[in-house]
Amino acid sequence: MSKKINLLQKNKSILNLIISGMILFSFQLKINAETLVQEKQGEIYEKLNTKLDLSLKFKDQSGNTVFFSDLLKNEKVLILTLNYYKCTTMCALQFVNLADSLKKLGWKIGEGFRIATVSFDPKDTVEIAAEKHKVWVPKTGQESAKWDFLVADEDSIKKLTKQLNFYYEYEPRTGEYSHAAALFFIKKDGTFYRYLYGIVYEPKEIKQAIIETSSGELGSFIEKIMTKFSKYKEQNGKYVSILNNQ
């Protein structure tokens, strides 16, 4: 397993470029198609400010029952990712980049914010979740980082992915899933507030999303001032500098 991860890290830049392009192209088509349908219903594709169901139930990497509300206890922000644990390409690259960005972020994971990864494959098990937890948490540089890997039944998965408008589709021929990739930032009351699309994340973007999702409760005075120089663009789920007039 360690050899695989090292190989991924060595080739990360090239693979990121290729796969990110594929994700953006395929997901943009999906957004356009969904938006055309949902605009007729008076909805927006990215359901920002939607209150998520806090009663959704999961199992964590230790086999404990966890409700969505438990993930928000004592924290101001939850960063959520949706993946499936048998994935060895896009999901693995997302984990590599997320762990690397969290390491560079310099904030303790579990003090004000935490991370949870939910598998959208109902066949994934607690044992597989435990393996992922063992591999990826240390990559953040924090052995005790609050990054949980969760599994759930099909009903809970469908409810969560529908609330977030997260696209995924099982491919029977290959046994794999085609899916989008993003970080979802959830407020302490369960409100879906921000998302960052793709599998590559700048630490400063994650930091700004956390600060904004916490309504300014997290971050130093200087860090909050620095957020004034970037603006969030819902169309592509990214921050852009206002100094470049973008």
Rank of each mutant, 00 (worst) to 15 (best):
T35S: 13
T35I: 03
V37K: 15
E39C: 09
K40E: 11
K40N: 06
K40R: 11
Q41F: 05
G42M: 02
G42C: 01
E43R: 15
I44Y: 05
I44E: 12
Y45H: 13
E46L: 12
K47M: 02
K47C: 03
K47H: 06
L48P: 08
N49M: 09
N49H: 11
K51G: 01
L52R: 14
L52H: 11
L54F: 01
L56R: 12
K57M: 09
F58Y: 08
K59C: 01
K59G: 03
D60A: 06
D60R: 05
Q61H: 13
Q61C: 04
S62K: 14
S62C: 08
N64L: 12
V66N: 07
V66Y: 01
F67A: 13
S69M: 08
D70T: 00
L71A: 04
L71H: 02
K73A: 12
E75Q: 15
E75F: 03
K76D: 13
K76Y: 12
V77Y: 00
L78S: 08
T81K: 13
T81Q: 13
T81A: 10
L82P: 05
L82G: 03
Y84A: 08
Y85K: 13
Y85G: 09
K86C: 01
C87P: 09
M90I: 15
C91M: 08
C91H: 06
C91Y: 09
C91Q: 02
A92N: 11
L93G: 01
L93C: 00
Q94Y: 02
V96R: 08
V96K: 10
N97M: 04
L98Q: 11
L98M: 12
A99Y: 01
D100F: 10
D100H: 12
D100T: 07
L102E: 09
L102G: 03
K103G: 03
K104V: 00
K104A: 09
G106L: 06
G106M: 05
W107E: 12
W107V: 02
K108I: 12
K108R: 11
K108V: 07
G110C: 05
G110M: 01
E111Y: 06
R114V: 02
R114H: 01
I115K: 09
T117K: 11
S119T: 13
D121Q: 11
K123F: 04
K123P: 04
D124N: 11
D124S: 10
V126N: 10
E127C: 00
A129W: 06
A130E: 12
A130Y: 06
E131M: 12
E131Q: 14
K132V: 05
H133F: 12
K134P: 04
V135L: 05
V135N: 10
V135F: 07
V137L: 04
K139R: 14
T140N: 03
T140E: 07
Q142P: 05
Q142H: 06
E143N: 15
S144W: 05
S144F: 08
S144Y: 01
A145V: 03
W147V: 04
F149P: 09
L150V: 06
V151G: 05
A152W: 10
D153Q: 15
E154G: 07
E154R: 15
E154N: 15
E154H: 14
S156Q: 14
S156F: 04
K159V: 14
K159S: 12
L160D: 02
L160C: 01
T161C: 13
Q163Y: 05
Q163D: 07
N165K: 13
F166A: 04
Y167F: 11
